[in-house]
Nucleic acid binder design. Structure first.
Lengths: 207, 207, 207, 207
DNA sequence: AATGAATGAGGGTTCATTCAT
DNA sequence: AATGAATGAACCCTCATTCAT
């Protein structure tokens, strides 16, 4: 039963909970469902987290921390501004496709009206590396006269994120209604290029 | 209690169910929650719909039908292609902001892995006026040499929908983390213009 | 299962609950304990009463109503005042010994700091026949110059009730520590006479 | 944590347990409730007392010992018998009002059918100073022809105790139903005199 | 066409207690 | 002499659903 290793017991519970919450949503998850993914029992969830809701909170926080961590590895080196924005769009695309569990958690939290995330003040203070990177590049491009000067980094981020997020989050309805698997391996390059094209077209300084 | 008007009783139940499912998700909704929004009792839900799941199915189908209906009123008249695509983007934007309940239902259905929508063959056959409109305009623009010829209507639709959908669907997390209310009245013009700009920039035929 | 007789089902539950709460106290009682005394299941308790606490409330109210009803049969006819107060004391004694379950409920409610009884406004309005009877007799005695004029009916009631209540309520500790079974059949006449003597001695007008 | 002073740790636990049991009853108290009132942890309760029940037993015994100890300070000096019995009644009254926690424990133990007190043989052997005092006075009064000769000290004790105990134990129900706070400061003299009057009237030798 | 009564299965949570050092 | 980690069994309550008219 691998007892006497509270750190690990706690981490195991958190991992299991992340999987199950992402799979079934908050209300759709039972504490037993989570316990079943674990070497311990349901009782331990209450011992370590106090309640289903607090566990969900821990999952949410942990997931956001993890994603911020992952974002930090993104960089565009010294690419020229236009190439850099394209690169950012593409990195964001890949990043989303690689973290579908996180995307589901975010969707779930929005279905819950953001009731829980609002209790996590800490998240707000977390660096948002992706946004910082974008700001730098836009500034560089602006100075070089290569990128439009009248666009906010957050708007760019919103556009890119929307596109990438949607493909994962809405894959089931969109895929079914349009008979197109958005995440099919052989369509990824197309979709990745597409958002790069869009952003470059949009941000390129008018001649 | 509203006796002898089965049509209306059924419609009332469907309306109540739509509201509650959109508010709380499938698992987060109880049959009692729905009944409470009604002039009748929980028993009637089983009488008319048979089960919670079948009721949800009816809600989903009804919601999609309603939205398709609404889309039909969209038109761009004989605007020149470039203006027409901008117009379509803007109409789509307004359309999303005006149907937030539907957007939540779609999110919920995706959280549910699209398990229910797949059972609604009928939806697939529904005209998708928005897409048809887009196809027409792209064709016109292509012929006139004003719009890129290598872009699929569905990709355009995906880009526009993503952007609009995201703002409603993810308002809570995005709004909280970036301290920006995406749906604030005074930012709507900005956001509406933005997606128009993006689409026009992207689709305009290279000189 | 004697279904389809909600009145009776409810009454059965109330009776069972009264027995078990009186036996084990509020916290010491489980909803299953009560259900076991019933032809139905635990589920019915929630169907009819909503919660353990509301059931307890119903038990308390019902018990008080029953006891007031029983008190109503008390009467002293046209006995002379002194005989009448003795009679009241004796009736009160018998009344307590005949309603030990009620006495336990009252003790339990006091252990609960009267939290529930305070929610039963209705009880306050219930006639307190015992007290009315006492007031009448005291008034008669006072006018006839046979009973002290400076004593409140409520004080007399308090004295008599205390004595009678204590014997039932504290039988276990008192009985054990003083090795005397207060409720032994062969000591009841003694105890009944005693409170009569006490009250008469106290209330008789000083010569 | 208060280490190396087992005596004191034990005493702290006992004090906390006394408070909590008196407040909430046996079943209404959780071992955690008690631990929270302590500088140590729940674990220590098991270390020192073995179980919730044994702790309760210790509380009960300790409380009775304390009360007997307190009773010992009661004395009536060389008052004449009639004054002495009045004095005893009044002392008993004050004694009860000063030990309301103990009274609750006794009520609780009776709710528990005296299951625990029966296991405390030691208590039976404890002197009952109050009773001894009463016996002495009655004997003196009897010899002097001033007090009735046919009354048992235990009956007198029962009468006085009932009256005093009831006011504390049943304060919540009685107070609510009769809208009278039995323990109000400004009514204590009245209630103290009352029981003195009653006892004196009863016990005074008939002329 | 409609409905009040009933329910088995499971939901989240808490309980007193023991394990293992 | 003391303690952090762990737990099986219950506990109160709610769920979607069916019974029976």
């Amino acid at each position: 039963m691998r007892r006497r290793d509270p750190e690990r017991t706690r981490a195991d519970l958190l991992t299991a909970a992340t999987t199950v919450f992402a799979e079934s949503g908050y209300a759709g998850t039972t504490v037993d469902d989570i316990a079943e993914q674990t070497r311990t029992t349901k009782r331990m969830i209450y011992y370590y987290f106090g309640s289903k809701e607090k566990l969900y909170l821990a999952v949410l926080e942990n997931a956001y921390r993890g994603i911020r961590e992952a974002e930090r590895s993104q960089e565009v080196g010294d690419l020229p501004p236009i190439e850099a924005v394209r690169r950012i769009a593409e990195l964001t695309y890949d990043h989303h496709l690689n973290h579908t569990e996180f995307i589901r958690l975010v969707s779930i939290e929005n279905i819950n009206h953001g009731r829980s995330i609002r209790r996590l003040d800490s998240l707000r203070d977390l660096n948002r590396p992706a946004l910082g990177l974008l700001e730098d590049v836009l500034a560089r491009g602006r100075e070089a006269g290569m990128l439009r000067a009248d666009v906010d980094a957050l708007d760019v981020h919103l556009l890119i994120s929307s596109y990438c997020f949607f493909q994962v989050a809405n894959q089931h309805t969109f895929g079914y209604l349009f008979e197109r698997d958005l995440l099919a391996e052989d369509r990824r390059d197309h979709h990745r290029n597409l958002i790069g094209d869009v952003v470059v077209a949009w941000l390129s300084a008018p001649l």
